[in-house]
Design a protein around this nucleic acid. Structure first.
Lengths: 247, 247
DNA sequence: CGAACACTTGATAAAAGTCAAACGACGTGG
DNA sequence: CCACGTCGTTTGACTTTTATCAAGTGTTCG
């Protein structure tokens, strides 16, 4: 398993902005873990207390909401290197469930420690806001996709988003990647039935827009798929100069 | 126009948590406005610079994303007393448009002033996180609704959410309220065509679940509508004690 | 080996979209 | 002041998309 560059909060945030030594030290002091999470284990439950802010060090997690009828809506996926719950961490009660899709390890900062961080290192809190913003952007993009695109486009947009978020590090040879989701999971993410997900994937496959081998997926013609999804790439980079410290 | 209790940031946030005098003063110092916004005017554009954090003092705004084909997906509505862009305000570039649905007045805190606030009053930043969390919750609830409910339930859930968010203050006599949205706007919010929104509303009307007069809406049987939407009310109140200052 | 579980496909039904036309309210310019 | 154009709403006829029900295949794992 190569490419595990970011062992903890300081390294991960340090990638986005130059942190001062004091900030790095503060993060290292607050950070707990890494702790292992089993596949299927829940680290946060809707309507229960929020305990911590999580950084996914390895593995994969998802957040979802339960429906009255027993179904669920998956709201986001969290890959290695991403942060779970940057928005929720400040509240007292969770509004979503968070569960591991595969055996994972997470670092955490206990919620009570966050307050101290806010007092001592306001800049780190600004970082947290940027994470919350990225999370929100993922949500609004999905909202647009579910609300306004048919199954073909939804699936194309979803696969490409996942591909992009996995990045260099998460991709296997030939840019193949493993979603670690059943077709039912994909349906719960995109607002489709598992049957329709299957048909749609098979169609994309026949058209040469995707290749599959088990749950590994590859894009033989990424440009065409991107075009189908109606995507222009975002996330160029963020200008953080305005919050650089004056020291 | 009664019930305009919250003239600015300090009053509005003060409602949620007891603010210290210093915090109130800091907010009052940073706050600009209120400034008027004309109906149809945009105060934030996708991919352009984020200028400020906004508090809606009167009127109504919406945020939305443009689609490739000229359509749009409305992501949230903002009523009098609510905050626009608590998440976006820290970033450099907006990921959504924000436009006034009716003539409105907004107070604002310029983005550059936010940094100062972060340095001096970390507790206020925690408040901002709570606002961001509420915004996110609205988004995930909508995602669930669009992804997993049919038009009837979607519309019922939407109308009730709007009713609840308008609260005592925003409701006219007999609890009637004005969405200020065309049926096309409602469709852009719920992922439906205007024609289908119309049919669905008319059906609910015939069934006695809603009454309409122009754009005013009333719930003759709110319990039945809530039941249809599959809603249990959230937002009981938030325990903020963990971030009360030690002074 | 057998029981789950995920995937696949067909037949059919339901939900939502599209196209088109008509109506009424509203406002503006001749 | 009224004729006219624009805009939002409403309804009908029809099409497309997606869901539902059902059955069969393959794989994994105890």
């Amino acid at each position: 398993m190569s490419g595990d560059n970011f062992s903890g909060f300081a390294d991960r945030l340090g990638e986005a902005t130059r942190l001062t030594d004091a900030e790095r030290a503060a993060l290292a002091r607050l950070e707990e873990g890494p702790v292992p999470v089993k596949r299927g284990e829940m680290i946060q439950r809707d309507n229960e207390r929020v305990d911590a802010l999580y950084l996914v060090q390895a593995g994969r997690l998802m957040s979802f909401i339960d429906l009255e009828d027993g179904g669920r809506q998956i709201t986001n996926l969290y890959f290695s290197g991403e942060f779970v719950g940057p928005t929720a961490a400040v509240g007292d009660v969770a509004h979503e469930n968070v569960e591991a899709l595969a055996a994972s390890t997470v670092c955490l900062i206990d919620k009570s420690a966050l307050r101290q961080l806010m007092q001592d290192h306001p800049r780190l809190i600004a970082m947290l806001f940027l994470l919350a913003r990225d999370d929100r952007t993922a949500l609004t993009q999905r909202l647009k996709s579910i609300g306004r695109q048919n199954a073909r486009k939804r699936l194309a947009a979803f696969l490409i988003e996942m591909y992009d978020r996995l990045g260099m590090v998460g991709l296997g040879e030939n840019d193949a990647f493993n979603l670690m989701l059943t077709q039912e999971d994909i349906g719960d993410t995109l607002g489709l039935t598992p049957v329709h997900v299957n048909r749609t994937m098979r169609t994309l496959e026949r058209e040469g827009l995707i290749e599959r081998e088990g749950r590994m997926i590859r894009f033989p013609d990424a440009a065409a798929l991107r075009n189908l999804a109606g995507l222009t790439s975002r996330y160029q980079g963020v200008d953080l100069s305005w919050l650089s410290d004056g020291s």
